[in-house]
């Protein structure tokens, strides 16, 4: 085999170019740099602040979370736009991939802003535990999201790996109704080869990529659970959703 060729006859040079483009796109579109997160990591919401979150009306906290999620999604859209090849897909497929994958990418990115040592996540400027979200009335979803973040953190991924994994989650042929699935598949394959290439360089343990891929069904299950909780919430608080939720959030999750 030609040593200049990497996986599946994609040259090593091309794999490097793909990886560098995605890493750059990720770094340019993260809400917080790794340094900023490091500095904030031990700034936690005080006992009094947690009590205030817990005593908020359910619909108020839902609205606050919807705003935070929508903000994070806008950065994911920018990430997607900067991935070479994404804007060359037809518009239908760009919208479809983002609609079905943006929340999954937000969840992957969330592991950067999760402190596994005290099980807290960055929310509205400080870190807080699951109890911050108690008033949402979605204990199962919140607990599953925290479990997912903790399990992803345990893989100790580098920024490069998080970048490539985010792209692999987004550019997925598993999404129904794609108009050009072959084009998406070609892009997805290159991203996976680039991810494999980077992981082989960084990890001695060859299982890390397999472990990472095995987390994808959990991501999908979390998004389904989010949709179900949103539907249940909307039945009780239709006005809050219709009037106060961000338009982009409503457009994406279509309650």
């Amino acid at each position: 085999q030609d040593p200049q060729l990497g996986h599946n006859n994609v040259s090593m040079g091309e794999l490097d170019r793909i990886a560098q483009n995605i890493i750059k796109s990720h770094l340019e579109t993260c809400q917080y740099t790794a340094d900023e997160l490091q500095q904030l990591a031990w700034q936690t919401h005080s006992y009094e602040e947690v009590k205030i979150y817990q005593s908020k009306p359910r619909d108020v906290l839902w609205q606050q979370c919807a705003i935070q999620i929508t903000h994070a999604i806008q950065y994911v859209v920018e990430f997607a736009k900067r991935i070479s090849g994404f804007m060359e897909l037809c518009q239908n497929d760009q919208i479809l991939l983002l609609k079905s994958g943006c929340l999954e990418v937000v969840l992957v990115r969330m592991c950067r802003a999760f402190n596994p040592l005290n099980n807290t996540v960055l929310f509205e400027g400080k870190y807080g535990g699951m109890q911050v979200f108690k008033a949402l009335g979605c204990d199962e979803l919140v607990s599953a999201v925290f479990d997912f973040a903790k399990s992803l953190c345990s893989l100790q991924l580098t920024e490069e790996e998080i970048a490539l994994f985010s792209a692999a989650v987004l550019i997925s042929t598993d999404r129904p109704w794609l108009m050009e699935p072959r084009k998406v598949q070609k892009l997805q394959e290159k991203i996976y080869f680039a991810l494999q290439h980077i992981m082989q360089k960084n990890h001695m343990d060859e299982d890390t990529l397999a472990k990472l891929i095995s987390r994808i069904p959990t991501l999908s299950a979390l998004c389904t659970l989010h949709t179900e909780e949103l539907q249940a919430f909307q039945q009780l608080h239709p006005e809050t959703v219709n009037v106060l939720f961000p338009p982009l959030y409503k457009e994406l999750f279509n309650p």
Binding site: E28, T29, Q74, Y75, V77, E78, K81, M87, Q91, Q94, I95, L98, K99, P247, L248, E251, L252
Partner: peptide, 20 residues
């Protein structure tokens, strides 16, 4: 397109890293 008006707009906008 109509159903995903905002997403469509976000995809069309030319944003630079400084805009984020």
């Amino acid at each position: 397109k109509e159903k995903h008006k905002i997403l469509h707009q976000l995809l069309q906008n030319n944003t630079s890293p400084g805009d984020l």
